[in-house]
């Protein structure tokens, strides 16, 4: 029989290893900032087309993530998508006249909302909405627009 002390030490090591693994998963593997996001403030933005944007997609400003998409709804009266953005509380000086666009990271990457700062002295507050928006670029439209332009050019040139 193994003695009591070494059993207790082994169990202690096991629990420590388990907790260390959990700690690593929380700190090193995931983004711990999910904790602080709950108490941020919300902005809304209307888009004609959001493409592949999803709830929890990042919201960035100058390439830095400052929040996440909290909800996506469709407004049947205006036929627009209403995207609710949850911004981390420390970013509280976004000018009123900032604009929001939907971009794609890389050719096949996920889509995200990018904010461009305006020049206003007043800042966005909770429940404000962003009036200047630019929809997502949908690949099919892009291609058809390109082809259309090409044809117009060719026709005009001849």
């Amino acid at each position: 029989m193994i003695n009591r002390r070494s059993i207790e030490v082994a169990v202690g090591l096991f629990i420590a290893a388990g907790l260390a693994a959990l700690f690593m998963l929380a700190m090193k593997v995931s983004n711990i900032s999910a904790f602080t996001e709950g108490n941020g403030y919300q902005l809304s933005a209307r888009f004609e087309n959001i493409g592949g944007l999803k709830v929890r997609s990042p919201v960035t400003m100058g390439g830095v993530r400052i929040g996440r998409v909290a909800a996506i709804e469709f407004d049947q009266n205006a036929y627009q998508a209403v995207v609710t953005l949850r911004i981390n509380p420390q970013y509280d000086r976004i000018p009123k006249d900032s604009s929001a666009s939907i971009y794609t990271s890389g050719l096949l990457g996920e889509q995200y909302v990018g904010l461009e700062p305006g020049a206003d002295d007043t800042y966005m507050r909770d429940q404000d909405s962003i009036s200047l928006t630019q929809s997502a670029l949908v690949m099919e439209r892009l291609i058809s627009k390109f082809l259309f332009n090409q044809t117009v050019k060719e026709n005009g040139g001849s």
Binding site: L22, L25, A26, K28, V29, S30, N31, I32, A34, F35, R56, P58, R65
Partner: peptide, 19 residues
């Protein structure tokens, strides 16, 4: 490797659900 992981693994959604 690490930054892509951290950007896309969510503490509540993924880690806590796994636990």
């Amino acid at each position: 490797f690490w930054s892509q992981m951290q950007a896309n693994v969510d503490l509540r959604e993924d880690i806590v659900n796994g636990v």
